[in-house]
Design a protein around this nucleic acid. Sequence first.
RNA 1: GUGGACGUAGCUCAGUUGGUUAGAGUCCCAGAUUGUGAUUCUGGUUGUCGGGGGUUCGAGUCCCCUCGUCCACCCCA
Length: 431
Amino acid sequence: MANLFQSVRGFNDVLPPDTAIWQHLHRVANETFAAYGYGEIRLPLLEHTALFSRSIGEVTDIVEKEMFTFLDREGDSLTLRPEGTACCVRAGLEHGLLHNQQQRLWYAGPMFRHERPQAGRYRQFHQLGAEAYGMVGPDIDLEVIALSARLLARLGLRDLTLELNSLGSSEARAAYRSALIDFLQRHESSLDADSKRRMHSNPLRVLDSKSPQTQEILRDAPKLIDALDLESRLHFEQLQQGLSDLGLPFRLNSRLVRGLDYYGRTVFEWTTTALGAQGTVCAGGRYDGLVTQLGGSATPAVGWACGIERLILLMKAQGVAVPDTAPHVYLCWLGDAAQREAARLGEQLRDAHPGLRLVVNAGGGKLAAQLKRADRSGARVALILGDTEIAARTIQVKSLRDTDTSPASIPEQQILPWSELSGYVAGLFDA
RNA sequence: GUGGACGUAGCUCAGUUGGUUAGAGUCCCAGAUUGUGAUUCUGGUUGUCGGGGGUUCGAGUCCCCUCGUCCACCCCA
């Protein structure tokens, strides 16, 4: 059947088997951020367009061609947020969170970029981010990286690489930038087309080029690491020392740069080879200039963002176990009297056991059909209530799964008086 | 945004050089079993062949346009 409507391209639904993974991820994120004293900030999806063009950079691809921007009824230019950091700084300034103080914040939610969709890259995608304000030293860089490492580990992800680089102070970077442009101009004829274009718009990104020929030329290019100012070099060395102290392995990558203009000094990425071209799962760095750029007083800041869809793809690829959400119990009934009794018993059991997941059969059906639903629901046991049971104030308990994991094995089928039902059910979960 | 592959039942897919009424498995429903699932057997339902246009006596099959998915690039989380 051809559907009358379908979702907008790159905007996806998340359906029940998958929502369990999303919920698990959010639960783990919540706990991990709490473990480091980070508070959640909830931000609107829509901002004034200028917020992003001023922070991300006028000539970046995001601002030039990827934003969902429109005029509202009053003629104001609004944009669905393409990233969270600028929004977070805006909120921090608006509510006075950043002036002369420290803040540890995190956020999660949808972001919007008008790109050609691909697995792990959608027009509405979701990010999970950390932001720390008001701390200059490498200790906070270390903290946010350790936090990201712990989050990824708690999600059960393996074989990730932490890549690390320093972009230096803005002065050092500006000097390096012109040195690099000089170098690139001398080799312009040998560069690939993309790099020629980027040479002027964002020369640092040429370092990232995938063209082997360009990479060959870049071997003789001036190195960013050699251009670092003394203070940035010290900062970077102390961060590396800290990572070693915590036993967090990393790989120095002098080609690691950022697409967004506001980064300086520390930049890092967690990458995987398991996701094709969408290999970056988490990326971040320091952006000491951003708060000033958006009208606040000078405030150092460092943070990162994870792509939730990519984390979930990776969790699936690596077969990460997610807590079971199947019901514990499926209650079958036969006849009108049993139906009423089943509804009453179901509510009673839910009162007694707030963690219990219990489905009461609905929509009728003969016992075979009800048991089939019970089986397909994933429930561990089915309860059966008919006229015979009601007369005796009992209920039949039928085991639907092999329970070889529990030493006190459940007999396949037994009859329990109502008075013992609650105690029996308690043994089915939270073990 | 650029290049390429693919769209057939709810799901996974077959469908010959264009040829009658488009198939399989699975799922779902019913029965074998008036109250016992997952196994078995029998029967049944499910399609504007992504959409529109064209060529043809005839199009799932060929052509054009369009929408969508995927892969790579670009970019990025």
